[in-house]
Nucleic acid binder design. Structure first.
Lengths: 208, 208
DNA sequence: GCGGTGAACGCTTTATAAAGCATTCAGTTC
DNA sequence: GAACTGAATGCTTTATAAAGCGTTCACCGC
């Protein structure tokens, strides 16, 4: 059983202290401007000792991003878990929240955004892992809807993947500039409407 | 009337010689490794004279990319113009060709790809212009289909925009690595199938 | 032996100087 | 006077040296 975004091996107390100290510095000064000596100093220990808890500086950064992402996954899962939502509302909630989270991270926590991007480039497998975690949330929604007959989905993982492709733009850096959020949001709505009509068509075609 | 990707003011003979010389160097060595002296030398003229035909080096590069893009637009238009194609086939041809063109440019003409990216970053308005040019091609397809009743489209530009959003992933740098082309192509197919079902649903809803 | 240290190593980033380049313009040619 | 030149200008890139940093490891205290 490998570790995933959701199921992390719990951290040693010392390891957590290191991660906390590093996180503060990463958020304020960024990855590059944070040194191992500083992190060690914050924890009242030597640099050498850091390596007893993390293999490298980049691994500390990965642990940091892993926390961010776990929190984000939790929020997404919470958004689609609200009682009384239709499938359509769940999908809309999912992708709107994702757009909002990316947008906010970019504009309000730029250091966290940069670090996240850097890790994704440096560790492609981590990016995959994260994409799979989101896919799992989507699959739960899709499978639940398929079970109640609200949706005609034969291959949930594949469908989730297709949805991720479709909404890729709304989770990428086209989100850069200020003042475009409302525009993106309304386009996202229109995209979802079209997708939804596609699902409706499939439902009436498969069970007329 | 402003110049667009399609309607370029025809170039002076000297200007064309400059652009041709610059293009050769851009393609072989890239933008940064090409100097104005070299371009001038290739044309048997002085550096100063280049500025009688182009305001700056970047403008030569823009003219170069403009050519590339005009050719690409021509190919896209040709693809959707083939006789006997249904709307669905036209849309599929359009986005598949676009995926192929981006992929090929990236892998087979990396210098051209880089230069294209650089211009898009340096001149956002050029990127907009290009997006509008593609939108126009899509709108022609959509409007023609709406006229024959093959498609229920009330706002063609908006719909074109939505389609561009949806297929954004297939025209961006997720296309980086080798061997993923077939995978992307099959995902593109699935996306188009879903979109198509959406259009079908709208047609039957608007004219039952 | 477990938790911890800090000097030593080699790579990377930065500071600084040198070189190269895009751009300009007074002047030349025809 | 329209087409063109090439040396002068100042900004940008590169080459090089110096400083800084991540990482290791032989060595302590308990």
């Amino acid at each position: 059983m490998t570790a995933t975004v959701e199921t992390q091996p719990p951290l040693d107390e010392t390891a957590r202290a290191i991660l906390d100290a590093a996180s503060r510095r990463f958020l304020h000064y960024g990855y590059g401007k944070t040194t191992m000596s500083e992190i060690a100093g914050d924890c009242n220990m030597s640099t050498g000792n850091l390596y007893r808890y993390f293999p490298s500086k980049l691994d500390i950064a990965e642990a940091f991003v892993r926390r961010l992402r776990a929190e984000q996954t939790r929020l997404l899962r919470e958004a689609v878990g609200k009682a009384g939502l239709s499938v359509q509302e769940k999908l809309r909630a999912f992708f709107k929240l994702k757009l909002t989270l990316v947008y906010e991270r970019f504009h309000k926590r730029p250091k966290a955004y940069e670090l996240s991007q850097e890790i994704m480039n440096e560790r492609p497998s981590f990016a995959d892992e994260w994409e799979r975690a989101e896919s799992r949330v989507l699959c739960e929604v899709l499978n639940a809807a398929a079970a109640t007959g609200d949706l005609a989905v034969c291959d949930a993982p594949r469908t989730a993947r297709i949805l991720q492709d479709i909404f890729y733009r709304f989770a990428s850096s086209s989100v850069y500039y200020e003042g475009e959020f409302d525009l993106l949001e309304s386009e996202l709505d229109d995209v979802l409407d079209l997708i939804w009509d596609g699902f409706e068509h499939r439902k009436s075609a498969s069970a007329p």
